[in-house]
Design a protein around this nucleic acid. Structure first.
Lengths: 249, 249
DNA sequence: ATACAAAACTGAGCGAGAGCAGCCTCCGGT
DNA sequence: ACCGGAGGCTGCTCTCGCTCAGTTTTGTAT
């Protein structure tokens, strides 16, 4: 029963997310709800989406964490983003013939599987939904862009702090975090692959952040020791996340 | 007359681009054509889109080059992408309340201005167009993702070569380049801001690429001296660009 | 021809982060 | 109670790319 209530909360979470941009009618909500038909569970080690494969599905995450990454022939890996409950995942892999990235569960994951056919048909029925999904995709792109700035123009310390702040903001939106901190199942290896650093160096950076009294990452929990100082220290600007006022009715 | 024929070519270039994913009917093409009403010229130094401003327009580029960038409070700048003829530009700035990035012309630019209202209305008329634009946005995101991998997991040399190869592929698609090379109006400073390096270091990297007999970038022209060696040297994979087979009719 | 600015290029020194090698700690399985 | 493995942590060395401080070249206006 705890699980089913969670599922309801998350089911509405995606609707709330999309609805915050485009006011959705009952018909559209029903279409959206219908997409949630195929609920599935996934476990760490078995990828949800596989780079280079075709005929992949997309998912809407109900619970758990997923990471999307690209792997190179050399073996090195770049994590593009982590998906948290309420997030879309693998949208590009159904629009494109071949998936250009992989996605793997970090924790146990509950997600609704979405087939390309269903989604594209839904767009035909309610164009507003298409606009809403376009908006959601743009928001994702905005996050990738910020991640890009992170890698291109910030030091390891700023980069790490900025990233953990962003995760905090996103988790707050779905009720999984506060300005105090949040539960975070990421290992230092995962963090390293996301931030373009080595795990060894992430470790030192985390130590420094702790010693500076800015934030503590220990035992699966991120604690903001001085939120305001952190925000100014790394020039954190949430504009790209706060795009939540309906534009269109 | 040379100019008007160019405009026709480019006007159809966006239609071809979108049509390659979703087969567009005459009605849809007409709606798309109608978006091209407001043709405008822009010149270097005056931004097309300004970070932090609201009520911005989007554009479809007919000729010239534009760069999209984010600037930080510290003054350092990260170029997210260059737009070339046929590209969309500033889509996020009309979907979001506030533009999260800036865009400035690198050369003289011809572009069609697109208002949020018109685009969203067009979606209502022809949902297929919405799907096509979603696809185009996803392709853009795929490029940003590849750029992210570039910054996170490649050396300065690989990064530079990969980036110039990607530009080449994109220009080839709109008939502005071949596997021999292409005209490229970018300064070493712009390249540096795109690749998260300093102009000084870009200079050394270009010299090395030249000395290795891989590529030459001189006087506004990129020449691939050994295309195949280059492609294998930097593990260049065009999957994320070659998504051009219609999925939906 | 001359003047000037922007872009291209070079050299010397330095530092952030990588690479390597190894130890510690926690936790689940038998 | 013991074992094994994954994740966390540390020290040392080295290198890639930055910084600073120039000079040279190219293009444009006079």
């Amino acid at each position: 029963m705890e699980k089913s209530s969670l599922m309801t909360i998350q089911g509405s979470s995606i609707a709330r997310k999309l609805g915050s941009f485009v006011a959705l009618s009952e018909t559209e909500l029903a279409v959206l709800e219908d997409l949630h038909r195929r609920r599935r569970s996934f476990f760490p080690g078995r990828d949800l989406v596989l780079q280079g494969q075709s005929g992949q599905s997309a998912y809407i995450l109900a619970s758990g964490w997923v990471c999307s990454y690209k792997i190179q022939r050399s073996g090195s890996r770049q994590i593009v983003d982590f998906q948290i409950p309420g997030d879309f995942l693998g949208l590009r892999s159904i629009l494109f013939r071949t998936a250009d990235h992989s996605a793997e569960p970090i924790t146990t994951v509950e997600a609704s599987e979405i087939h390309a056919r269903d989604l594209l048909q839904a767009f035909g029925q309610t164009p507003k939904l298409a606009t809403a999904v376009l908006w959601a995709a743009s928001r994702d792109e905005a996050m990738v862009v910020e991640h890009l700035v992170n890698l291109g123009r910030r030091t390891a310390l700023e980069r790490t702090a900025h990233f953990l702040l962003e995760l905090g903001s996103r988790l707050k939106l779905v009720g999984l975090g506060t300005n105090e901190g949040y539960d975070c199942p990421l290992s230092q290896y995962l963090l390293a692959d996301a931030l373009g650093l080595t795990a060894v160096h992430i470790n030192r950076v985390l130590r420094e952040l702790r010693e500076e009294g800015l934030l503590t990452f220990k035992k699966g929990r991120v604690t903001f020791d001085n939120f305001d100082a952190l925000v100014t220290a790394v020039d954190f600007d949430t504009t790209y996340l706060d795009q939540d006022r309906p534009l269109l009715n």
